[in-house]
Design a protein around this nucleic acid. Structure first.
Lengths: 336, 336
DNA sequence: TTGTAAGCGTTATCAC
DNA sequence: GTGATAACGCTTACAA
């Protein structure tokens, strides 16, 4: 099988190798009879072009990169990434692209991964997630002119191509909902403080409180890492306050669930004493008790738009608009 | 940046392009002075070799493929795959390999994906999961001589390179545990009936019952698809029997959790009336109530061994042994 | 030890 | 329309 290349097909079909290439590329200016002859041989031998050679020649690998800033353990439990990865794969496949996923925990290895994937031209473009307020990667990629799409937000809004949930709006909506259902001391547990998504959801939360004339209390705001313990300990701190909060908005489902579990451990009744809401509407939400009210962020739509945009960029089309927002909706369950 | 190739480095360092290549490849027979000169230029310009050209020339892409037989939705909720993917990435990275993940729902698209990835030589080798009893892919890949490693079991045992959990042993162990804790009517809810893993765990379950002189009752065995509904409806059927089962062994955590939730909905007390046990020890288990007892299958070890084996195969070393078993252990929680 | 040159399998630009 | 032929950027005999 190793020796199956276009010259071989050409030899058997009695044409030149260039003609084989033309036929396979669908070049219209080839004699129909020849076309058939070539295709017959291709079919019979099951010839498939070598992607490596195509990559070199065309300067395209048809590979999209996704770098996840988590250690393996953290990735394993996070439904957001599984959903994202699966949706990107699906969408990319429609355009005959494949997905190369990498993880990078430390800042150093992040740098290495980006170098490795892009500068080596192993992938044609990158989808970035979990961007930080002042993200070196983004400046770097921008200045080097690499095709990339950000899932998240960046200032100024159209400096880069990006797709985002309406994080501010969604956090506003859910906080507003909590207030309307009688909650007054609403706490927010974010993810890492530098993450744009952490800040955006905090923003929406503050805006909503303000719109109801409820003062913003910094003691009700905490930040957690992407591990269960830190969200749980943030919850413990919140419980030590008097009066205790009567609602907790977690920046994602895992944070909300960790906090809720911790609260229950302390004898808190949910949602009677404290209501809990998460983000992502992951499958998890339906398995726990009480089931978790969560903001559904339409990950497939997010992935779809990001992938479309990236492929457009790679293929030289300037996406318009350069920023797209995917709406979110509240999925009410038992916890709030 | 596009014009940064070895010739350019060579020109600036005043050597031939071949020498640049030799330096970068760590070829020992190069004059130290030249080495330094070349490396200096490489450093200064930040030159990185083009992976596409390397792939063509070396006939290696340094890319490993993983094809998951699930639709995006099913993948999203499944902690097994996130853990697997993350661990493979981590291990592959140590050997300077990257991971290309694809999904394939239908049999037709599966075929297409395998063709696409392997025959086009887009990846150097494949890791297969969720194999079926009579798996066409495996016969095909074997006969074509492609490097691949199976996560799962295949007959005869050393026909292919494989890594597996001790599924029979683990199911035996957990069933034995249930019997010893007083359970007698133990049900088993498998995944799709054709899957090897479904059958292996069923086997261990049967063996354990037999070892205790408990008759095997086919009415206590059901098969579910990879969606919540089918496991739940299997549970409903089990509950309609008299006497009801007093324990349920789910083939994975999601199946066990769906069944447990359904049982609770019917007023069943867990674990008093019915005990539940799952497989995979996913993060999920700790979030639900009661927390789910589960068999931990050491996914990182599985992924690590499979990746090591595949890379060995790719690089021409014949792995020895061709089959490796990773032990499992029971993680006891509240549900059983 | 270093340089020259022949590929790796395609695609695309020429002539014919 | 079709067939030589020159890249694509790199690795590696082979020559010097």
């Amino acid at each position: 099988m190793a020796e199956l290349k276009q010259v071989e097909i050409a030899r058997l079909a009695g044409v030149s190798q260039a003609t084989v290439s033309r036929v396979l590329k669908g070049n219209p200016q080839v004699n129909e009879a020849m076309r058939q002859r070539v295709l017959a041989v291709v079919q019979e031998l099951g010839y498939v072009p070598d992607a490596r050679a195509q990559s070199l020649r065309s300067q395209r690998t048809r590979l999209i990169g996704l770098v996840v800033h988590r250690a393996a353990e953290a990735l394993a439990g996070d439904p957001f990434f599984s959903a994202l990865i699966a949706s990107i794969i699906e969408q990319a496949g429609r355009h005959d692209y494949h997905l190369c996923v990498d993880t990078a925990r430390t800042a150093r290895s992040q740098r290495a991964v980006y170098e490795e994937l892009l500068r080596t031209r192993r992938v044609d473009g990158l989808i970035l997630v979990e961007s930080e307020t002042r993200d070196k990667r983004i400046e770097r990629l921008s200045s080097e002119g690499f095709p990339f799409v950000l899932i998240g937000r960046y200032d100024p809004a159209d400096a880069v191509c990006s797709v985002d949930n309406d994080n501010i709006g969604a956090a506003f909506m859910v906080t507003d909902y909590l207030v309307r259902t009688g909650r007054r001391r609403i706490a927010y547990i974010g993810g890492p403080a530098g993450l744009t998504v952490t800040r955006d959801r905090l923003q929406g939360y503050r805006d909503a409180l303000e719109s109801h004339g409820i003062g913003y209390d910094p003691h009700l705001v905490a930040f957690a890492g992407f591990n269960e313990r830190s969200a749980a300990s943030a919850m413990t701190d919140l419980l030590s306050q008097t009066p205790q909060p009567d609602a907790v908005l977690g920046m994602d489902d895992l944070i909300a669930l960790s906090a809720m579990r911790e609260a229950k451990r302390h004898g808190v009744r949910v949602p009677d004493d404290i209501a809990f809401v998460g983000f992502n509407d992951s499958p998890l939400c339906r398995y726990v008790e009480p089931s978790l009210t969560s903001v559904a962020v339409e990950i497939p739509a997010l992935a779809r738009k990001a992938t479309e945009m990236l492929i457009a960029l790679i293929e030289g089309h300037e996406p318009n608009p350069r920023r797209q927002i995917v709406p979110a909706r509240l999925v009410k369950r038992e916890s709030a």
